[in-house]
Nucleic acid binder design. Structure first.
Lengths: 153, 153
DNA sequence: TAAGGGCGAAAGTCAAAGAAAGTCAAACCA
DNA sequence: TGGTTTGACTTTCTTTGACTTTCGCCCTTA
């Protein structure tokens, strides 16, 4: 697959987060390193390192400015509880998939299971005459989460 | 027989799929190569690389966009194929669950995966105002089956 | 010597431009 | 007349750059 610059920057930040739970970086330096415009760093952060994907970004401007990216870590019980909360609202495909990814990150789902669940809530699966996909989607996920909560004890 | 451009493009993609179970291609490049308009690639994909013929097409737009064509696994006893056929009709919960059980019996799904899929098509998951559960159920299962067919070893 | 102002060095915002792929219907052709 | 070919228009994702905001530091000045 042909990777975009944004994909490569994403990978770089991701792998920096492998060891530690957070990293601090300089937007300008990173932009120079990847030969891109500084605001592209913001684009990557805004599209890839979102709260939905389990990240928090903090920063400071001015001299001694920085960007800090942290990976969220709370226990699985809390995670499942708030995931369940999320499912009380309709979920669009993107958000739902991100939630499922997080379940895999936490080893609540295997890679294969993750793929299968994504399949069940895909647009094609829920392709239905009336526009209530997002509601069905969150219902399905809610049941999956309840199932996982049972396994968990 | 006089081959149309579409036939030739079809052959090209087919033979690219000889070695691997999937290929990624660039619509624009392919169109340039065959001196046709880009949308003709879509025409070929839509008419030749369909589920019924055993293919799945995925894609992404924008920079670093791509089209991925995968050949579905043609398993020996045609079980998945006929399962796919079944999913062209609405399925009630009992029938659907039996189908899922059979997939487990054939080691196409692990016990855990089997349970998860059952969860996603349960009455609670599909609990929805309009009575089209059985249709959604078979749609979901159809996508799961296609996914299983994609799992090349 | 403390307060305030100016400067430059960050990071942030936003919208336009660019780069793919998708859709759809008209025209074409065998 | 049904399968192909074509092209105008749309949608989605990425890249770019001009402009804005914030912050620390230093230099005045009362």
């Amino acid at each position: 697959m042909n990777k975009s610059v944004s994909d490569i920057i994403e990978e770089f930040i991701m792998s920096s987060l492998d060891d530690d739970s957070f990293i601090e970086l300089s937007r300008n330096d990173l932009a120079k390193f990847f030969a891109c415009v500084p605001s592209q760093i913001n684009y990557v952060l805004n599209t890839r390192f979102t709260i939905n994907r389990g990240f928090v970004v903090e920063s400071q401007r001015g001299g001694a400015g920085y960007i800090k990216v942290s990976r969220l870590k709370d226990n699985d019980d809390n995670f499942l509880k708030s995931a369940l909360d999320l499912c009380n609202q309709p979920l669009n495909l993107t958000d739902a998939n991100q939630l499922i990814n997080q379940m895999m990150d936490r080893n609540l789902l295997s890679k294969n299971e993750c793929e299968l669940i994504k399949t069940t809530i895909s647009a094609k699966a829920l392709n239905n005459p009336i526009n209530i996909d997002n509601t069905i989607r969150s219902n399905i996920l809610k049941q999956v989460i309840i199932k996982l909560m049972q396994n968990h004890k």
